[in-house]
């Protein structure tokens, strides 16, 4: 178990290194001189040189890479060229919106998907199953940002229950959660549809296994068999999908923030792109990728808990 954990940790670190190299090369090596890139074509050579010095963009690529990584490890994400403040500060402000939004959406996803998947699998072929399958088929096809617009149209424009966007800050948690509710629903619905279908499929697969027949032969009812024998085995593919979904939710949050004018990482990154603020793009992307890799790692560990066969590998 300990050795397996160490191998996983090593592979986690290797992935992070590889990802950081990819991001760095794309953003700093490919454009040539990043300072010149950020200032655009008409910039004076001395202005470019000044910016280069200002942002610490001097030196060879490997040196700059090591500087960047070293800084990230210390919590120094560089300085934003447009805002003239440390990137870490910008990020700190906005993580408080993006992360709760993704987490809220993930919780909604699970809360919707698990009962739906269970019902569909246990009433296979019945009306409930058809209903769940039809609704999820539609849910998958709906783009989350369009669904978000429809929600705004209905609840903000027609019914006037909520405001159409913006974020009041966490000083008033109820208002903050309220502002995140429509965005979280918009994010969660397509993902919940996917998860419900995966869960249904995994459960049906598991229900076809011999050990389910054994359990039934012992005298367990259909329902008890699902709860005691099928669910935990079906959890394994479901966990994989949930891991992937986290990265979709994070990326999706970037887009949904635009619909609801939420001051999150997504808005930050789009503004940075339009303003060619490479330092911000670089560090924020790295953070997103770090979050995804860390979640994948956590999913790997969760596997081992769900499946004893993996524990002693």
């Amino acid at each position: 178990m300990r050795r397996a954990l160490l191998t996983r940790l090593l592979s986690l670190i290797l992935s992070l290194v590889a990802a950081s190299v990819v991001i760095f090369v794309l953003l700093q090596a490919v454009p040539g001189d990043p300072a010149a890139f950020m200032l655009g074509t008409g910039a004076q050579p001395d202005t470019v040189a000044a910016l280069r010095a200002d942002l610490g963009l001097e030196g060879s690529l490997p040196v700059r890479y090591l500087d960047w990584i070293g800084g990230m490890l210390r919590g120094d994400f560089g300085t934003s060229y447009t805002y003239r403040v440390p990137v870490a500060e910008l990020v700190a402000d906005r993580v408080g919106v993006s992360l709760p939004l993704a987490a809220y959406a993930l919780i909604l996803t699970v809360v919707i998907a698990v009962p739906a998947g269970l019902i569909a699998a246990s009433r296979r072929g019945a009306a409930a199953d058809w209903g769940v399958m039809g609704a999820t088929q539609l849910g998958i096809a709906v783009p989350n940002f369009w669904f978000a617009m429809l929600l705004v149209l209905l609840f903000a424009v027609k019914l006037r229950w909520v405001s159409a966007g913006g974020f009041p800050g966490w000083s008033d948690p109820r208002a903050a959660l309220g502002a995140l509710t429509l965005p979280a629903i918009a994010l969660a619905l397509p993902q919940a549809s996917i998860l419900a279908r995966v869960l249904r499929g995994a459960l049906i697969d598991t229900m076809g296994q011999d050990y389910i027949r054994t359990a039934r032969a012992k005298g367990l009812s259909q329902r008890a068999t699902i709860v005691r024998h099928a669910l935990r085995n079906a959890a394994i593919p479901v966990l994989t999908i949930m891991g992937l979904q986290f990265s979709f939710l994070l990326a999706g949050a970037i887009i949904i923030e635009n619909v609801f004018f939420l001051p999150g990482l997504g808005r930050l990154i789009f503004q940075a792109i339009t303003q060619r603020d490479l330092i911000v793009v670089q560090s924020v992307t790295m953070l997103l990728v770090f979050a995804v890799i860390a979640v994948t790692f956590a999913v790997d560990l969760a596997y081992a808990l769900a499946d004893p066969r993996l524990r002693r590998r």
Binding site: L14, S15, L244, S247, I269, V281
Partner: peptide, 22 residues
């Protein structure tokens, strides 16, 4: 397979952001 995992760590939107930024 590890290369695959690495790409999975970049949601397509993040890849698009990187490419578009440059």
């Amino acid at each position: 397979m590890r290369g695959n995992d690495l790409i999975f760590a970049f949601p397509s939107l993040v890849i698009a952001i990187l490419i578009t930024a440059v």
